[in-house]
Nucleic acid binder design. Structure first.
Lengths: 143, 143
DNA sequence: AATCCTGTTACAATAAATGTTGCAAGTTAC
DNA sequence: GTAACTTGCAACATTTATTGTAACAGGATT
């Protein structure tokens, strides 16, 4: 399959809404920045709204962060857009009559959960505010 | 795309080789345990051999772990089969003329590298021996 | 010599992602 | 109040990384 960049695009949307809050915040404008199409942006925004990270108004291009960027973590965005999607994936079709095939799924589930937890702890430690500040610093450094 | 279970299948192969070392270790026998096809198993085994985790002999069904299972980590297997594949993926096509689009790739690269490192540290802490022991314990608990 | 095996390649099929299109319904400006 | 925008949602097409399948040269075993 293709690799997902929902998380990247989701962060992009939230950062855009924060940085350009006094400019055009239509899905078309944001899509131009992501170089994606407005429909995808609206799909992602709908998920961010549902997860309580963003507010929006039907009919009006007026999205806003639902809470301060410092209180939104990368993990919040990940879970909003990817749900409980695991980073690593079990092979769910193994031969149950084999010692290995019959038990490895359970064993790997434990191991993968540990990896997932480590990754999520790190994602929780990264805030949207940190990313926005980094973006603005990089922009300032260009001039 | 499909989700990759190369890592799961790779661990499966290594565990199988260790547990069934006195039985049939042909790619067909291992494939039957994974419920995959022998060609896939041979492809994965070739990568494990190249990475120095497994030994094999052309023409003879005689694979063996290249070093003790306690000295093979989940990270070793991951890197053998997935190379340097990142768990999270940047959107590489953003508008460089936008403050967000022009800088977010670099910002997210840093953030994602931190997440990757946390996940890899956890993978490094999980040994093949640990997984094999867990498999054998689960099997024993069935009776 | 016959039969199995590995190692490798090329191509087909599958599945999860994004792209595209269309439209009902809300909002704003005039 | 109507024209021109917007969001929100759904259906379908396209893309692409994966696994599946088939074929075959060459080594190993009996």
């Amino acid at each position: 399959m293709k690799y997902s960049h929902k998380l990247s695009d989701g962060v992009h949307i939230l950062a855009y809404v924060d940085i350009y809050q006094d400019a055009d915040l239509s899905s078309g404008a944001i899509a131009a920045s992501i170089e994606a199409n407005p429909s995808l942006v609206r799909r992602l925004m709908a998920q961010l709204v549902k997860a309580g990270l963003l507010t929006s108004q039907p009919g009006a291009a007026a999205p806003a962060l639902a809470r301060p960027a410092a209180e939104i973590s990368l993990l919040d965005v990940y879970q909003a857009l990817e749900g409980n999607k695991e980073l690593l994936h079990i092979d769910e079709k193994t031969n149950p009559q084999c010692i290995v095939g019959g038990n490895i799924q359970a064993s790997l589930n434990v191991a993968y959960a540990q990896v997932q937890q480590a990754a999520e702890a790190q994602m929780a430690a990264i805030s949207l505010q940190g990313i926005i500040s980094d973006i603005l610093q990089r922009e300032a450094a260009k001039h």
